[in-house]
């Protein structure tokens, strides 16, 4: 709970601060806190990924983009009234939805009834891999993972296509 509260405070910071460098650093801290929350929630693999990806790689990428552009956000000219209304309406609907959610941490909820018990019971004898996350990722849901790998492949190719070639002058160009 303390970690979650800290995350909320950091989020307020991200919303308020106009210096983009500060925002990127705060989002790195946020990712580390998220990784700690994942460890508390027993998701060790996810925590590892979040710590290395969210706090490491994406922070580096954002910083390199700030180096290429500029690190100061201008004051928005439009009033924040409409976004506040949109956000508040979304929050109200979501809060209404949480009233029906099952209580936290109980073993009898619907999430734990479907295929997960099969994975937990059969992983050892069917795949010989004790880490169920790995066996589900690579074996039971191999199609999913193949799809995800293809998405990463496509995104990587697209980035290379966008950023390949020499830097042009800053006047508006018709290609791109």
């Amino acid at each position: 709970m303390v970690l979650l509260t800290l995350m909320a405070i950091i989020t307020v910071g991200i919303v308020r601060i106009r210096n983009l460098f500060g925002v990127v650093v705060l989002s790195g801290i946020y990712s580390f806190l998220m990784a700690s929350v994942m460890i508390v929630l027993d998701a060790v693999d996810v925590a590892m990924t979040e710590a290395s990806v969210g706090a490491g790689i994406s922070t580096v990428l954002m910083l390199s983009v700030l180096y290429l552009t500029k690190s100061r956000e201008s004051v928005p000219t439009s009033t924040p009234l409409f976004p506040v209304i949109v956000a508040a309406a979304a929050a109200a609907m979501l809060l209404f939805g949480t009233l029906d959610l099952p209580p936290f941490g109980e073993a009898a909820t619907a999430v734990h009834q479907h295929v997960a018990p099969h994975y937990l019971a059969k992983s050892m004898e069917e795949t010989g891999v004790p880490n169920v996350v790995t066996s589900v990722l690579a074996s039971y849901r191999g199609y999913d993972t193949l799809g995800e790998t293809t998405v990463i492949f496509t995104a990587g190719i697209a980035v290379l296509m966008l950023l390949r070639g020499r830097r042009k002058s800053t006047k508006p160009s018709t290609d791109a």
């Binding site: 693999d45 990428l61 295929v115 994975y119 999913d144 697209a158 980035v159 966008l162």
Partner: peptide, 29 residues
């Protein structure tokens, strides 16, 4: 044991998320 299935889904979603974030940043550049 805690349920492994959401862990798998989110594990891949994080890495895909950073790939798409990189794509968005490339567009910004």
């Amino acid at each position: 044991y805690s349920n492994p299935l959401p862990h798998v889904l989110i594990l891949t979603a994080i890495v895909v998320g950073v790939a798409t974030l990189a794509l968005g940043l490339a567009l910004v550049v």
